[in-house]
Deep mutational scan, measured.
Amino acid sequence: TRVETATETAWISLVTALHLVLGLNAVLGLLLLRWQFPAHYRRLRHALW
């Protein structure tokens, strides 16, 4: 059971790390998009709101 718990903890930390990386990538991607295409982003925002 100790090995199972260790594997579980490893999986949880792995999934958490993946989520963090994906979240960071999403934020960075959005920031890059805003920086690269400000006009396009503004138009998109007007369409959404």
Rank of each mutant, 00 (worst) to 15 (best):
V15H: 06
T9Y: 06
V3D: 10
P38F: 04
A26E: 04
I12R: 07
W11K: 00
A6R: 11
V15E: 08
P38T: 06
H19A: 15
L18M: 09
L14V: 05
N25W: 04
A6W: 01
T7M: 15
T16H: 02
Q36E: 03
R34K: 15
L20E: 01
W35M: 15
R2N: 12
V15D: 09
N25R: 04
L44A: 08
L48Y: 00
L48A: 13
G23T: 11
Y41T: 10
W35Q: 14
R34E: 02
L33G: 05
L33K: 03
A6K: 11
L28D: 03
T16E: 05
N25V: 04
L22E: 06
V3A: 02
E4H: 09
W11N: 07
T9S: 12
R42T: 12
L30D: 01
R2M: 15
F37N: 04
H46L: 04
P38E: 08
Q36W: 14
H40C: 15
A47C: 07
L33D: 04
W35H: 15
A47Q: 10
L32D: 00
Q36M: 14
H19V: 15
N25K: 05
A39Y: 11
W49C: 09
V27L: 13
L30T: 05
A26V: 14
I12H: 09
L28R: 02
N25M: 04
Q36N: 06
A26K: 01
G29H: 02
H46F: 08
T16N: 04
P38I: 13
N25L: 04
H46Q: 14
A47W: 14
A6V: 07
L31F: 09
R2I: 14
L14K: 03
S13M: 13
E4F: 12
A47V: 09
W49T: 00
A6L: 06
L33P: 03
Y41H: 04
A47S: 12
A10H: 01
W11F: 11
R45W: 06
E4Q: 13
H40A: 13
R45E: 08
I12T: 05
R34W: 09
R34Q: 06
H19G: 15
L32Q: 06
V21W: 01
V3H: 04
W11M: 06
L48W: 00
V15Q: 03
T5V: 03
N25I: 03
T7F: 08
T9M: 11
G29E: 02
T1D: 00
R43W: 04
W11E: 00
L22C: 14
R2G: 10
R42Q: 12
T1N: 03
E4T: 12
A39H: 14
T1M: 14
L14D: 00
F37V: 06
Y41N: 05
V15Y: 08
P38G: 10
L44S: 01
I12N: 05
L30M: 11
V21R: 01
E8Y: 03
L31Y: 09
A6F: 02
W35S: 15
L22I: 14
L20I: 13
A47F: 11
V27T: 06
A6D: 02
E8T: 02
V27D: 06
R43N: 02
R2D: 12
A10E: 15
Q36V: 14
R43Y: 01
L44V: 11
A17R: 02
L44T: 06
W49N: 00
A47R: 12
L44C: 06
A39R: 14
G23C: 15
L24Y: 10
H40T: 12
A26Y: 08
S13V: 14
W35G: 12
R2A: 13
F37T: 00
E8I: 02
R45G: 06
A10P: 01
L48E: 03
R43L: 04
A39M: 12
N25S: 10
R34N: 05
L30F: 13
L33M: 12
E8S: 06
L30P: 04
V27A: 08
L31W: 11
A17I: 11
T7I: 11
F37M: 00
L18N: 00
R2C: 09
L28T: 09
T5I: 06
L33N: 06
E8L: 04
A17D: 07
R2Q: 14
S13N: 05
A17L: 13
A6Q: 10
P38Q: 10
A26D: 07
V27Y: 10
L20G: 02
A17S: 07
H40N: 02
T1K: 12
L33S: 02
A26L: 14
N25F: 04
L44N: 02
Y41G: 02
L48I: 13
L14I: 08
L30K: 01
W49A: 02
H19W: 15
R34A: 04
T9K: 07
A47G: 00
E8A: 05
P38Y: 10
T5S: 07
T16L: 09
A26F: 13
F37E: 05
H40G: 11
R2L: 14
A17M: 09
Q36F: 02
T5A: 03
Y41M: 14
V27M: 09
L32N: 00
R43V: 06
L30Y: 09
G29N: 08
S13I: 14
P38L: 09
L30Q: 05
W35K: 15
G29L: 15
V3I: 13
L22D: 09
L20F: 13
L18W: 01
S13W: 14
Y41S: 07
L31I: 11
A17P: 01
S13E: 01
V15W: 01
A17Y: 03
L32K: 01
I12C: 03
L22A: 10
V21P: 00
L31S: 06
W11D: 03
A47T: 10
R42L: 10
L31R: 06
Y41A: 13
S13C: 15
L31K: 03
L44W: 04
R34S: 05
R43T: 13
A47Y: 12
V27P: 05
L28W: 07
H19F: 13
A10G: 11
L30E: 05
I12G: 03
L20N: 02
L18K: 01
A39T: 12
L44H: 01
G23H: 01
V21L: 14
G23R: 02
T9R: 09
L24V: 12
T7V: 14
P38K: 08
E4R: 09
E8D: 12
A39F: 11
A26W: 10
G23L: 13
A10Q: 06
Q36K: 11
Q36D: 03
Q36P: 05
G29Q: 05
R34I: 05
L24C: 12
T5Q: 09
L20H: 09
V21K: 04
G29W: 15
S13Y: 11
L30A: 12
Y41W: 15
L30S: 06
E4K: 08
T16W: 03
W35A: 14
L18V: 08
W11I: 12
G23S: 09
V3Q: 11
L24R: 03
A10I: 07
T5P: 05
H40L: 11
L32P: 05
V3M: 02
A6S: 15
R45C: 05
T5K: 03
V27R: 04
G23K: 01
G23M: 15
R45M: 09
G23V: 14
L22G: 06
V15C: 02
L32T: 01
W11Q: 08
V27K: 00
V21C: 15
I12P: 01
T9L: 10
L22T: 08
L20R: 02
L33V: 07
H46E: 12
V15F: 11
A6N: 06
F37C: 05
L31A: 12
A47P: 07
A26N: 00
L28G: 07
T5R: 01
H40E: 09
Q36C: 11
V21Y: 02
T7A: 15
W11C: 03
G23Y: 11
S13F: 14
V27G: 10
W11L: 06
A10N: 01
L18Y: 00
L24D: 07
F37G: 01
L33I: 12
S13Q: 08
A26M: 11
A26R: 05
H19L: 10
L32M: 11
L28Q: 08
W49R: 02
R2P: 11
L22H: 02
L14C: 09
T1S: 12
L14N: 05
V3G: 10
L44Y: 04
H40R: 08
L20K: 03
E4N: 08
V3W: 04
Y41D: 00
V15M: 15
E8P: 09
E4L: 10
H19I: 15
L22Y: 08
R42Y: 12
L32Y: 11
A10R: 06
L48M: 11
A47H: 03
L14R: 03
L32G: 03
L48H: 00
V21Q: 02
G29A: 14
R2K: 13
W49I: 02
V3F: 08
V15P: 06
L44Q: 00
V27N: 07
R42P: 01
L44I: 13
V15L: 12
H46Y: 08
L30N: 08
A39E: 12
W49D: 03
R43Q: 10
R34M: 11
Y41I: 10
V3L: 11
L32S: 05
L28K: 07
L20S: 05
R34P: 03
V21T: 14
G23I: 14
V3N: 05
L30H: 03
L30V: 11
T1Y: 15
A26G: 12
Y41C: 13
L24E: 02
W49P: 00
L20D: 04
L24Q: 01
L31C: 15
V27W: 02
L20C: 11
L28E: 01
R43F: 04
T9A: 13
P38A: 12
G23Q: 05
V15A: 08
L33T: 04
Q36S: 13
E8H: 03
L48F: 11
L44D: 07
L33Q: 04
A6P: 07
L22P: 09
L22Q: 10
A10C: 03
S13K: 02
T1H: 13
F37I: 06
L22K: 01
L22S: 07
A10L: 08
E4W: 05
W49M: 00
A17V: 10
P38W: 02
R43A: 03
L44F: 12
V3Y: 07
R45S: 09
S13D: 05
W35F: 14
L31G: 07
L20V: 13
W35R: 15
L18E: 01
E4Y: 12
Y41V: 10
R2W: 14
W11S: 05
E4C: 09
G29S: 13
E8N: 04
T16K: 01
G23D: 10
L48S: 02
H46S: 03
L31D: 03
